[in-house]
């Protein structure tokens, strides 16, 4: 697990006001792998995910201790611009959240504002939608509102929107929890496809999903990292009793 880490977390504590949500977390995420974060509600897995692209900055009264190194640089160093970090670390949310714009403009929105040439936009939009396996379904309705798409299509659109920024890492916060089984299967296939080019960190409530799609799995409980190992190991021979209880459905 030491080789080619893209993110290393060193002794991170995180507070909402006076409440500590994460306790002394240290872990590394490997490049071009899918890492699943699992654990019961409120265990801090989503909080950790949102720490990685500084989305927690948006919440008043939060505080981070420790360091998170992305390609060797501490993203919480005072001179780091969170906007720059978020361009390299994209995010897909629990509920599909397309903008109330056309399909085309949803994808083109980010690149346009970050200085991609107008001439290159069409190609970039097409490429991103193809990567998200949505192109064939929407190529004839690019100027229709994204709000008219189905939930599953919207979520793939959000993935395409994130990919259009050409990030290195894709964070996914329970991306299929609001979707039907068929849409979920499509997204899972897509993740399989995407890991060739991207590092993916996914929070999920769905144990089977973690087992199916991830290479590594981290189990969290009340703000602590309990166990972190290869997925097959976690799901066959967990070392900690709490992990075993959780994945066998004895609590959570």
């Amino acid at each position: 697990m030491e080789s080619n880490a893209i993110i290393s977390i060193n002794r991170v504590n995180f507070y909402y006001g006076a409440v500590r949500a994460l306790t002394d977390i240290s872990m590394k995420f490997r490049k071009n792998k899918v890492t699943a974060l699992i654990g019961p509600s409120g265990c801090g897995k989503s909080t950790l995910l949102r720490l990685l692209n500084r989305m927690n900055d948006l919440i008043d009264g939060t505080r981070v201790e420790g360091e998170i190194l992305f390609e060797g640089q501490n993203i919480y160093a005072p001179d780091v611009d969170p906007v720059e970090i978020r361009r390299k670390i994209g995010m897909v949310f629990q509920k599909p959240n397309p903008f109330p714009k056309t399909i085309y403009n949803n994808i083109a929105y980010g690149p346009k504002l970050t200085g991609v040439n107008a001439g290159d936009l069409d190609a970039l939009v097409e490429q991103s939608l193809k990567q998200a396996v949505l192109w064939d379904e929407v190529k004839d309705i690019m100027s229709k509102s994204a709000m008219n798409l189905s939930g599953g299509q919207q979520q793939r659109l959000c993935i395409a929107r994130a990919l259009a920024m050409k990030p290195d890492i894709l964070l996914m916060d329970e991306p299929t929890s609001a979707l039907d089984p068929i849409s979920t299967a499509k997204i899972e296939e897509l993740i399989e496809e995407l890991k060739k080019d991207y590092t993916i960190i996914i929070v999920t409530h769905n144990m089977q999903q973690a087992a199916r799609i991830s290479d590594e799995t981290a189990f969290f409980y009340i703000g602590n990292l309990i166990e972190y190992n290869k997925t097959e190991k976690i799901f066959t021979k967990p070392e900690v009793k709490q992990t075993e209880d959780y994945i066998t459905g004895r609590f959570g």
Binding site: M55, L58, V83, M91, F93, N97, Y109, G110, A162, M165
Partner: peptide
């Protein structure tokens, strides 16, 4: 909706934009 703001910020678009 707050999700619109989050989606935009997560793309690395600045607060003002």
């Amino acid at each position: 909706p707050q999700t619109f703001r989050e989606a935009s910020l997560s793309l690395g678009v600045s607060k003002w934009q």
